[in-house]
Amino acid sequence: MIDRRDIFGLAGAIVGHAGLLAAILFFAPKGPSKPFVPSNAPIMVTLADDVGLISAAPDPSDQPPASASAGEEAPPDTEIAPPEPQPDPETQPKPAPPRPNPDASERQRPDRQRTNQQTQPNSNGRPRPGLNLNLSANDGPAPEKTNGTGNQSQASTTGKPQMDLGQAIKRAVQPCADQQVIPAPEARQIWVIVQLRLNRDGSLAGLRIVGHEGTNDSNERYVARVDDAVEAIFRGCTPIRGLPPELYDVPGGWQSRKFRYRLNS
């Protein structure tokens, strides 16, 4: 039975809900008070496909523009050879574009000579550490993929990024590492020193765990399980393909290599 009070209550409820809706629409936040400003500058990520004895990254800081070494592979920044004197591009006046400039060709020559020296083995026939020895990879001009903006085009002139052999091997076994179950969070702190011997075809010739680092009272009981997991990783993902054959039996090559490894690496 609906009487006058119920009708009044219903009317009040309708008016109240309508008022609340209007208030929500009127006072709804129109947006954040301050526009969102990303706090970090963009980070350029370069995936290195080349493999060297040590890792290298392009140095965009102190090399002349790309025109100085166009068509040649740029030297990495870990170069051992002493830098030859070269003209300062900032202090030299720019040549007039229409007529050929002999100064420019002279300026290119030292770089070219130096690059040829780098891509060839040394006089004793052994590669130098730090050189980009991935000869099977593209020998053409270095792609300018490391540049974020046009005014940083110097980076492409200084060398291609490359990862060292340890990183290449770790990347090759990473699919097997992803399948491993880490026994406990404390086990992530355990570094296993692995002595790895590989055949020339990339297959596993021998694996020996020579030590551990990062063990303590809390994770000592997981050492055996971590050792088993590491051994399973290396046995499961060998033979390793894609390692440069010219770095097989050089000092520091991948015939026999010792490195630190942990499960979440």
């Binding site: 009070r5 009708i7 009044f8 209550g9 219903l10 009040g12």
Partner: peptide
């Protein structure tokens, strides 16, 4: 749920008057 809210507030208001009376 909105209808339930509407009706419950109608009861709340109407019952308040009824109880007071």
């Amino acid at each position: 749920l909105l209808i339930a809210s509407l009706w419950s507030w109608a009861i709340i208001i109407g019952f308040g008057f009824r109880l007071r009376a």
